[in-house]
Design a protein around this nucleic acid. Sequence first.
DNA 1: CAGCGGATGTGCT
DNA 2: GCACATCCGCTGG
Length: 211
Amino acid sequence: MRSRDILPRSFYDRPTLTVAEDLLGKTLVRKIPEYGRLAARIVETEAYIGYDDKACHASKGMTDRNAVMFGEPGHAYVYLIYGIYNCLNLVTERSGFPSAVLIRAAEPIEGDKAMASLRGNTVRKPHDILSGPGKLCMAMAITRAQNGIDICKKGELYVEDAPAEKFEIVKCPRIGVDYAREYKDKPWRLYIKGNPCVSKKVPDDRPRSCV
DNA sequence: CAGCGGATGTGCT
DNA sequence: GCACATCCGCTGG
């Protein structure tokens, strides 16, 4: 397989919704000594944008946990959720403006077996290996140890460009943010229409149904 | 298949 | 104390 270019910092230094959309179809790469190279095609993202967005962790100001979101674009923001699981975000926009894209689901490309093993071999079908933000981190061994790392270098975690493809994008409200008041219904969750690896689909997978 | 409860660290009230 | 950008196993149809 031909190796592709790594996405540069300028890719992340753009409006968060644009980055969230452009990340669909790109290749998330994770290198671990024990398992080698793991790769997956990103199929579902969510945008979390700035101080006003009540669903964004940064809306209540900077804390030890969310500090990375306030920094330079092109870094990983990994946080612990429900005390057990991790979620991977990619920091966007200029330093000082806290925003990021949550990587919610992906399609296995390389290292399927290793990723299923990291999931504890409880996976029933291949398309369920990375079909959720917590699952994805578990399968790719992403924890808070990766919080803050620069993803614009070919290190242990980065995103590669991928050949242009045609697919339809579904835009709908984000998952699990009903508390976010006027921001809860913003169509800031994006996914590739019809892809089996997406975590939760809208009824009939119709793009217009909830935009 | 749907629904529900448990697990449990971090940050807010 | 409580809510939380979640997942899994168990229950009942």
